[in-house]
């Protein structure tokens, strides 16, 4: 790949942390992503919104290596990473959380975070060391960060839903990602809990200079924290810009924001 190719069109613009170029993905006859181009600058807290089936999950799964794109390319800090495997992308600094909370339910909170720390420091293969006493201080610090310090010896499967979400955040942070993808971080939470929860992520991201891209159904949550918004519709980028710009965009209004609040509720139910 030549140097000019790997650079954005305008040389004056700094290299984005994440550059998605004309990404395309189909499943059989269904076009899930169609010519999706997104640029993400370091430090952004970007929301990706759109109705169900707009391609948000496919976008996330493609960015984290679960799907291989049919068309287009993905660059991470200028390095092409298109089609890399999930674990390779994770090692390059792409972390993620899942819509359906993914913790290791038969292990304690502390062990959950330790697993992630050990994976990040490349010690998962060690067959002789005593895992329980490894990287304990770091693990506790992370639990502290998300407010779960007093739950360290509880089995993750027995934690409350909101606590599991926070634990998952700690797990994701343990790998020191450059880019963190949050898939519906507030799914399944009560309205008040949602804002609280996203505020926590937002604060942490600011403190450690983390770039975040997240999907979200709740517009209150999106407008509370997003630095910019990308609207997906039928696999395409319908609109992109600052929250106010997106809110004012009549096209977005027609296909998405125009929905009545009860429609949102129904969608939450389904999700």
């Amino acid at each position: 790949m030549s140097v000019t190719e790997s650079r954005p069109d305008d040389a004056a613009v700094p290299e984005p942390l994440l550059r998605i170029e004309a990404l395309g993905k189909r499943f059989g006859g269904l076009v899930a992503l169609d010519n999706v181009t997104i640029r993400l600058q370091p430090g952004e807290f970007r929301a990706v919104i759109g109705p169900n089936g707009a391609g948000k999950s496919t976008l996330f799964n493609t960015l984290t290596g679960l799907h291989r794109p049919d068309l287009g390319r993905v660059f991470l800090s200028g390095t092409e990473v298109t089609g890399r495997t999930p674990h390779a992308l994770a090692r390059l600094g792409v972390g993620r959380t899942f819509q359906i909370t993914s913790v290791f339910s038969a292990l304690t909170s502390l062990e959950n975070v330790q697993i992630a720390l050990l994976a990040h420091s490349g010690r998962s293969w060690n067959v002789l060391a005593w895992a329980r006493s490894m990287q304990v201080t770091q693990a506790r610090a992370l639990l502290d960060l998300v407010g779960l310090r007093d739950r360290e010896s509880q089995l993750a499967g027995t934690l409350a839903h909101g606590d599991q979400k926070r634990l998952e955040l700690a797990i994701a942070l343990a790998t020191e990602p450059k880019l963190l993808l949050l898939d519906e971080p507030t799914a399944g939470m009560a309205a008040r809990e949602r804002l609280e929860s996203i505020a926590l992520v937002h604060r942490i991201a600011r403190e450690i200079g983390l770039t975040v891209i997240f999907t979200e159904h709740d517009m209150a949550v999106v407008f509370a924290v997003a630095s910019a918004i990308t609207v997906l519709h039928q696999g395409r980028v319908l609109a992109e810009g600052l929250p106010e710009e997106v809110r004012a965009n009549p096209v977005v209004h027609d296909v998405y924001l125009g929905e009545t609040p009860s429609d949102y509720a129904a969608e939450q139910e389904r999700a």
Partner: peptide
């Protein structure tokens, strides 16, 4: 009881999650 075994248990519980940690 080593990281190898802990990671293995984590894979049993949720392989995809472990994959996205870089394993």
């Amino acid at each position: 009881n080593a990281p190898f075994g802990q990671t293995l248990r984590a894979i049993r519980d949720n392989a995809r999650r472990v994959q996205h940690l870089g394993v």
